[in-house]
Amino acid sequence: MPRTRDQLAERAAQELQDGFYVNLGIGIPTLVANYIPDGMEVTLQSENGMLGMGPFPFEGEEDPDLINAGKQTITALPKTSYFSSADSFAMIRGGHIDLSILGAMEVAENGDIANWMIPGKMVKGMGGAMDLVAGVKRVVVVMDHANKAGQSKVLKRCTLPLTGQRVVTRIITDLCVFDVLPNGEGLSLLELAPGVTADEVAARTEAQWRPAPELKAA
């Protein structure tokens, strides 16, 4: 059975490590914060200029000066620091963030990612996504395996305008987990979601992949 949004977030939370500084994207990646294991210290960065993001405020305690990159009201923690957008992206571009978990419209077998623009349809802008994929040490994509039309989002080559080239290291979908192999060797199937078979992945994936030696069913 394919993973639900929350199960995807729960699986993505396994990418976290104690002491990590992490930037989470919009959508399913946001939910990852709900699954940070007890006792693990993870510090969330918000690219509008905050390190150490706390939970949403209680009603009546919203502060218009304190928002996350999704423009939602949030709270601070004792360890919080604030800084300018230039400092924030120096942190990102300079490789100081350990992990970025992002959604995507398309990912290719060489690690290319497209998640900011549909020509003629969507002109919202890339925000900080291009900086994140270019600068963060490890980029993990969490997304549905197929788009609304049922077509594979895991492709040989992206068809939409790219956010970054060869930047994704791992792809977590509702069906499975792929690693992007170095040197253009394609994808390696690392895990299957509970009840999903390798044949099913084969039928629903456009990209080239091969099973990893340690392939396991979750």
Partner: peptide
Amino acid sequence: IEQRTVRPRQAAPIPAATGAEV
């Protein structure tokens, strides 16, 4: 405030309050 987001006072689990690439 553009996106007023709050959590209930009684909630046991703390909801995510995290960012987007915006």
